[in-house]
């Protein structure tokens, strides 16, 4: 049994870590951008951000004043048992979100869309979002929080099979350039692309691809992995760097996730996880152990449903 008190305590700690500590994989990727950046203004910006991460860690204060929209991804082992059940888990996550907002402090960003009511705790109607996944043969729970900014750098479009790879490139560039000017997307970013599914699935997959996969990871389908490399490279060939200044630092990495879609369509979404790519994960075991990490390990063969009640292996499914 996984104790409710451990869930709430761990969730609070995750909120704090996500807000303050830049994940190592993103940091290493940004340093690689800094090494090759030739633009003086773009270089200055990246250097300032590198100093900012240090200041955040030293002072234990949030790295960015816009602490985004805190949300939760929960992966539950098939054999895991939660004290109080899933309702108690959701209560713990909501409490931790509210407490951390006051204690860290985070910016109380969450308001009613029409009345702009703000309870100063990042909790409200349908907020924070909690998404679930499951894992076979496991008795643990993974909690991941992501604090992504909510305004710019994401877009969705219904493309069609005839649009092809050329259409994918076009929409990708349009999104990066449109939101890259003036640095609205807070690049260099981890760009996530969702392809396929229905409209909502495409958007969810793209967001998860940007926020829940680490820099350097590749899609298991080698042809999609090659497209990830290609899109990363063309993003860095725009001539645009940090804040939209001349340079080459646009994409720290590009991740693509796919889902089977309607035979007539090819929905696509693009998401940019920013210079404050905030994510933090912990695994809670029934014996009370808690292990913190920065790789959410969200995407697996199981989560992609590549092996469930389906005889075809991934490679054939991709054909």
């Amino acid at each position: 049994m996984i104790a409710n008190s451990a869930l709430e305590r761990t969730a609070f700690e995750l909120m704090t870590k996500a807000a303050i500590e830049i994940p190592d994989d993103y940091l290493a990727g940004l340093r690689r951008c800094a090494d090759t950046e030739k633009g003086d203004l773009s270089s200055f910006v990246i250097q300032a951000m590198l100093e900012n991460y240090e200041a955040a860690k030293e002072d234990r204060r949030a790295m960015c004043g816009d602490t985004g929209l805190p949300r939760w991804y929960v992966k539950i082992g098939n054999e895991a048992r939660i004290e109080g059940g899933p309702v108690a888990l959701e209560t713990a996550l909501r409490r931790a979100t509210a407490t951390a907002t006051h204690e860290v402090p985070l910016r109380p960003n969450r308001v009613h869309p029409l009345w702009r009511t703000d309870h100063n705790n990042n909790v409200g109607i349908n907020a924070p979002e909690i998404e679930y996944a499951f894992h076979p043969d496991a008795d643990w729970i993974d909690l991941t929080t992501v604090h992504k900014g909510g305004l710019f750098g994401s877009d969705y479009r219904m493309l069609f099979p005839g649009d092809g790879i050329e259409g994918i490139r076009r929409f990708y560039l349009d999104t990066l350039i449109g939101f890259g000017k003036r640095g609205l997307a807070c690049q260099p970013a981890i760009v996530g692309v969702g392809l396929g599914g229905s409209k909502d699935t495409s958007v969810v997959l793209g967001k998860q691809a940007s926020c829940l996969r680490v820099v350097g990871s590749r899609n298991p389908d080698p042809k999609i992995a090659a497209l990830e490399d290609e899109l990363k490279e063309i993003g860095n060939s725009i001539g645009m760097g940090a804040m939209g200044f001349m340079g080459s630092s646009m994409v720290v990495d590009c991740h693509i996730e796919v889902g089977y879609c309607h035979t007539g369509g090819m929905p696509m979404s693009v998401h940019m996880f920013c210079l404050s790519s905030r994510r933090s994960t912990a695994r809670l075991y029934p014996d009370g152990r808690v292990e913190f990490r920065t790789d959410p390990e969200w995407f697996t063969d199981y989560s992609r449903r590549s092996t469930v009640e389906w005889a075809q292996p991934m490679a054939e499914a991709a054909e």
């Binding site: 910006v45 300032a48 100093e51 900012n52 002072d59 204060r61 960015c64 004043g65 804040m243 404050s276």
Partner: peptide, 14 residues
Amino acid sequence: LTTVGYGTGALLGR
């Protein structure tokens, strides 16, 4: 004046 980054929130906080 524009902030830098964006998101030098910790430096500005100092």
